[in-house]
Amino acid sequence: MAASAHGSVWGPLRLGIPGLCCRRPPLGLYARMRRLPGPEVSGRSVAAASGPGAWGTDHYCLELLRKRDYEGYLCSLLLPAESRSSVFALRAFNVELAQVKDSVSEKTIGLMRMQFWKKTVEDIYCDNPPHQPVAIELWKAVKRHNLTKRWLMKIVDEREKNLDDKAYRNIKELENYAENTQSSLLYLTLEILGIKDLHADHAASHIGKAQGIVTCLRATPYHGSRRKVFLPMDICMLHGVSQEDFLRRNQDKNVRDVIYDIASQAHLHLKHARSFHKTVPVKAFPAFLQTVSLEDFLKKIQRVDFDIFHPSLQQKNTLLPLYLYIQSWRKTY
């Protein structure tokens, strides 16, 4: 089996927390979720979201995140109150960019949308954001926290390059993509939290790379249903696996070995980020709550012996909000 052949990389499970039942964490995340308004986002309300009498641009960002990046939404709820709305805006910006690729039928249209967001970032730093909910909220975040323009532009530029429907040539190319998107998002989150620390940035770099790799793995069944495969070609070739094997949902050992190798790289990034947690300011830990969902996925895929098409991998963990709150309460990542 794939797991038994390579099992030495995987460390002990961390979500089991001995003695936790003896201490009762304060009510927090679930209460916040219940208090949030929840009407559906419609095209009509989106168009009017920044106008008078609408929910408001902040509510639009929150709803977009809740629907399109639920794990990011849950993590954002546990940030300090003064930072929450800015991170909602930042993550909503990322969602807007991420959904361009799947929402257009022609690359030219995707490039036009990316050009809109490039100009939007430029206009935000000229205090002239367009009348668009996410743009307005992002402008507020930039003004409030003096966010670095370079990180925002890196996210747009990398998403634009990724409009080509090509597999990553190697794991390094996937890591570079993750660094310029997910890690950049974390650098900006640290700025919102008021953290300027080399060790925190180092952790953000590795956690962002782990996030990018896990996202690529999780999306494999969806991409396969659209006749697309984006997994690193070098690892596929190493194990003699073709793109057609993934399109046919082949579950042979060599296919699972490909998934094992890729998942192991995410695991190593996560492990390395945690190896120097004592040197990272505690104030930075809330920015890294996504490690909970990353670890949850890596454990699940290990349990199914790296069968990327196993139905259990597509099921939401209903206990994730609780695990996130516990992680926040324990002040760790």
Rank of each mutant, 00 (worst) to 15 (best):
W151M: 06
Y177I: 03
V121L: 10
E173V: 04
R169T: 12
A266T: 02
D234G: 03
G51M: 09
A47E: 03
D305L: 01
L174M: 08
A92F: 02
P281C: 05
A98N: 05
V304Q: 05
S76K: 00
Y333W: 05
Y323R: 12
V258F: 00
V100D: 05
L147R: 01
S242L: 03
K107M: 10
D102M: 09
R248D: 04
A54M: 08
Q132V: 14
G208M: 01
R226Q: 14
E122W: 07
L147Q: 05
I171G: 02
R91I: 01
Q251G: 15
A273Y: 01
V156Q: 03
A266E: 00
N317I: 07
K196E: 07
L147I: 09
Y70D: 03
S103L: 09
E191T: 03
T189Q: 14
Q314W: 08
K278N: 08
S184N: 12
I109F: 05
R84I: 08
W117N: 00
G194C: 05
Y333V: 03
V104D: 10
Q115V: 08
H269M: 02
R248G: 04
T120S: 13
M233N: 05
A210E: 01
H239C: 03
T279S: 13
R303L: 11
V241C: 14
A167M: 14
Y260F: 15
D307R: 03
W151H: 06
L320A: 05
K283T: 14
D102H: 05
D165R: 07
E158K: 04
P281V: 02
K172P: 10
N250S: 08
P130D: 05
G208C: 00
D69E: 07
Y73K: 01
F309I: 05
Q182A: 13
F309S: 05
C236N: 03
M233Q: 11
A49D: 06
E179K: 01
Y125T: 03
W151Q: 07
L152C: 03
I262K: 01
A47F: 13
V229S: 13
T57Y: 14
D164F: 13
G240A: 10
N254P: 15
S275F: 06
R66Y: 09
S275D: 10
A266Y: 00
K172G: 12
V104N: 11
H223T: 07
L90R: 02
R227E: 08
Q265M: 10
K331A: 11
P221M: 14
R150K: 08
S183G: 10
A287N: 00
A210H: 00
P80K: 07
R226L: 12
L174S: 01
K140N: 08
L111E: 12
I109N: 15
D197L: 01
K209H: 03
M237W: 09
R227K: 12
Q265G: 07
P133L: 05
Y168A: 07
Q290I: 07
L79N: 10
E244Y: 04
Y260T: 05
L138G: 02
S184V: 15
Q302A: 09
S76W: 04
Y168R: 03
H267I: 07
P281G: 04
D201A: 04
T332L: 15
D201Q: 05
F93Y: 11
K140S: 04
Q315M: 14
P311L: 08
G110M: 08
K143Q: 13
V258E: 01
K271W: 11
H59A: 10
D261Y: 06
L163T: 07
T181N: 02
L231Q: 00
E106P: 12
Y222N: 09
K118L: 04
A135I: 04
D307W: 04
S45G: 09
E71C: 10
R227C: 11
C236T: 07
K119P: 02
K154P: 02
K67F: 06
V142C: 11
R330T: 11
A266D: 00
G212F: 01
R256T: 07
L217Y: 02
N180W: 15
S85L: 12
Y73I: 03
H199L: 07
A200E: 02
H277V: 10
R68I: 06
W139S: 08
Q265H: 12
L152P: 00
V46N: 06
A178E: 02
K101F: 14
L64A: 13
N254Y: 15
Q211V: 11
L185H: 03
V258Q: 01
R330P: 00
P281Q: 05
A203D: 00
R91L: 08
E71N: 11
K118E: 05
Q302E: 09
V134Y: 02
L65Q: 05
A135Q: 02
D197P: 01
C75L: 14
P311F: 06
D234F: 00
A141F: 00
D252K: 12
L319I: 13
E82G: 11
G208W: 02
S205R: 05
A54D: 08
A203Y: 02
A98P: 04
A273F: 03
A178F: 02
H223V: 07
L185V: 10
S183P: 02
F88K: 05
K119S: 10
P80H: 06
E158L: 04
K209L: 05
T318P: 12
D165W: 10
L74K: 01
L319Q: 10
L324M: 08
